[in-house]
């Protein structure tokens, strides 16, 4: 590890330690926002791990998240919570692998289309299975897991995601993904198994999303398919990651925090226009800052260096 790595590592530890103190403030409102931010940080960062280097836009976050939530909803009465988290992880990884194997061997468009309706499709199937064999539509999730615990769980997961992202960035897999994102034909002709690399990283992002869903499930007391599989979630994750920028590991973080805070304010002031405003925000980002805050920062620092040099 270089000096710079140690410095970043130190910063990350300090940042996490400070963030971990939030529940001590005793303010429930702050904690709720903290949970939301932590959730989106994990989701957007893990989304960017895959979609950043490959430019394959995944809209499947809500599907994996919903699966994780449902694992907990179905098993909470019979299985220890910690085991459910592991199951959610596996379910997320396996379903991401299946989606990846079906679509990632082909052009990127097929992948986007497939993920676009995935959450809705899974919702239909879950609803159908439940109403035919489950006998009821939803499930009660009654646990003694508090908001604080959820928050700390998410922070721990965030730490894991950053660590994983850093390791992948230095690994052959990360390098392979970068080459694939540049030119898939060259990648294949350089000996890279392109489909395998893409599927592996998509699995990472899918299992994290599923785990987040499982961690957040106790927040609801009653879970039904339309709550678990909300397509809005995929959209919000994409928008926040893009706002921050996907070229750096910390990019999504700087997108999530301002956006979540802004969104809190917006959805309180204009509760009926959230969809419209979300669309406007999305277009603003795509048209004005296509590379996010990270891109802006890099442009400015390049200009600054030019002026100095």
């Amino acid at each position: 590890m270089t000096d710079k790595d140690w410095r970043n590592f130190g910063l990350a530890v300090v940042g996490l330690a400070i963030a971990a103190c939030l529940p001590l403030s005793g303010n429930g409102y702050y904690l709720t926002i903290g949970v939301t931010i932590a959730m989106y940080v994990v989701l957007a960062t893990s989304w960017a791990l895959f979609s950043g280097p490959t430019h394959y836009i995944s809209l499947a976050t809500a599907a994996f998240y919903g699966l994780g939530t449902y694992v907990v909803a179905l098993g909470i009465d019979d299985v220890p919570y910690i085991v459910l988290l592991v199951i959610a992880l596996v379910v997320g990884a396996v379903s991401a692998a299946l989606v990846g194997l079906a679509t990632l061997r082909l052009s990127g468009v097929y992948f986007v289309i497939f993920t676009l309706g995935l959450a809705e499709m899974v919702r239909q199937v879950v609803t159908w299975v439940q109403s035919n064999w489950g006998g009821h539509q939803g499930n009660y999730v009654l646990t003694d897991i508090t908001e604080e615990i959820i928050y700390w769980e998410l922070l721990a997961l965030a730490a894991c995601v950053y660590l994983a992202g850093w390791l992948i960035g230095r690994s052959r897999l990360g390098f392979a993904l970068k080459i694939i994102g540049n030119d898939e034909v060259v990648a294949a002709h350089s000996g890279i198994n392109t489909a395998r690399s893409k599927v592996l990283l998509f699995m990472v992002s899918g299992m994290v999303a599923s785990l987040v869903g499982a961690i957040l499930a106790p927040r609801w007391t009653y879970i039904e398919p339309s709550i678990a599989f909300s397509p809005m979630l995929s959209f919000q994750v994409v928008i926040m990651a893009l706002l921050g920028g996907v070229k750096r590991l910390w990019g999504p973080l700087v997108g999530v925090i301002p956006f979540t805070l802004l969104w809190e304010a917006v959805s309180i002031s204009f509760p009926n226009q959230t969809l419209l405003l979300m669309g406007v925000a999305f277009l603003l980002i795509v048209y004005t800052i296509p590379h996010g805050f990270v891109g802006l920062l890099e442009t400015y620092s390049a200009r600054f260096r030019e002026r100095k040099g």
Binding site: V112, L275, L276, G279, V280, F282
Partner: peptide, 14 residues
């Protein structure tokens, strides 16, 4: 894809 996705939300919102 990103732009038209944003537009779809605007249309729904409208």
């Amino acid at each position: 894809i990103l732009a038209t996705f944003g537009m779809s939300f605007i249309l729904v919102g409208l």
